[in-house]
Write a protein that binds this DNA or RNA. Structure first.
Lengths: 205, 205
DNA sequence: AGCGAAACGGACGAGGGCGTCCGGTACCGT
DNA sequence: ACGGTACCGGACGCCCTCGTCCGTTTCGCT
């Protein structure tokens, strides 16, 4: 990886990333490449030269979002109270996703083996550990499975609203409901069996 | 409304509706009109003649789904136990939506004032009554609001999976979780405030 | 059977997204 | 300051979708 980019090239690259982040965040993942280029003030060719495929751009654009995600999970895991940690993770991640339209799509992506997979897998693994501890502490219902979390994230993605503010509010309430559904409770009725959604599923178009 | 359609015209109309139902159901609302025409074995012009706008077609195609929806709600309302009725409504409607990709989009549609609005409003009203009775019976949490149901339906829409079967399974479990979150429970923590999603919201593109 | 009208569907032009090529521009080293 | 070159971006061709027009087919009535 020779970093020998000319100064104007580096500049353009940076501006493209900024534009992509802004647009993905606001509009979702399916903004035309053209529009990203336009907002970045470059031609389409330049964009394609820097990021031959949209996935490359997406991966770069959400690298720090993913880092934020990992940070949240790490914080949650660091909490001495695993249940509180888990709640924190759910709340924060839901909010993160509510604020960023594109990130959700990228995260739960139907994209096959995106480069972020490593980070995603790591995150899921860590949460799995946290969940186990929360179960052991008797706060998380014993029949919770990791796919339930994926389910909640997917579901959270389904929440649409006119404004970001409304979406965030709705998402917060949703997270609250999810948490209470996950909480261990003496007289819980059994749940229908979980469906496999999580890691593998290529989820064809 | 002169029903004076020629027999071949009626036949075509019926085949178009069938095709539309099948495709909307399987692929969602954004299948090309062309493809519907192709599957129905007619030309594009014929399709456009019968249904000048996509909304018209959508409305026709989901008329019976909406009826099914109303039936479910009616059954729920008829149940002497309002809580059980409400659970039934949630489960059935989630399943209905999980089975039909397009219906969810049509139901929670961002479409402005679709002709189904009447049915939708009616449904919401009826559920509101049911919910009130369930609250009075002490089974539904008092801080439940109707928008929570909309929230759940939206969220249910977010659930994606490779196969319909998987989606239905996931949806069932999700409904189970939602129900338990809604259930009145002695030591419930307060929820974040609800966001207005329901009836009005034009929800711009 | 034969005629008028209703209905059909292939064909058209516009609009937009995609990925690529090439003449021109601006940077960087000397 | 000047040449070489890395880099830029407008322009091109391709494909897909949309909604409409018009010559042709088919129905239904007598």
């Amino acid at each position: 990886m020779p970093h020998k980019l000319r100064s104007d090239a580096m500049d353009n690259r940076a501006r493209i990333q900024d534009a992509a982040r802004a647009l993905f965040s606001a509009e979702g993942l399916d903004v035309p490449m053209r529009e990203i280029a336009r907002r970045a003030g470059v031609g389409p060719a330049t964009l394609y030269r820097h990021f031959p495929t949209k996935q490359t751009l997406v991966a770069e654009a959400f690298a720090d979002q993913l880092r934020a995600c990992r940070t949240i999970v790490d914080e949650g895991c660091a909490d001495p109270d695993p249940w509180r940690g888990l709640c924190l993770v759910i709340e924060k991640i839901c909010e993160l996703h509510a604020r960023d339209r594109g990130f959700t799509e990228a995260f739960l992506s139907t994209l096959p083996g995106a480069p972020d997979v490593a980070g995603r897998e790591y995150t899921l693994k860590a949460v799995a550990g946290l969940a186990q501890r929360a179960k052991d502490a008797g706060r998380l219902r014993p029949d919770f499975v990791l796919d339930d979390l994926v389910l909640v994230l997917m579901a959270n993605k389904g929440i649409h609203a006119a404004s970001t503010a409304t979406r965030v509010r709705a998402s917060r309430r949703f997270a609250g409901l999810a948490i209470q559904a996950f909480e261990a409770c003496p007289h819980r009725a059994p749940l229908p069996p979980a469906a496999r959604l999580g890691s593998a599923a290529p989820a064809g178009a």
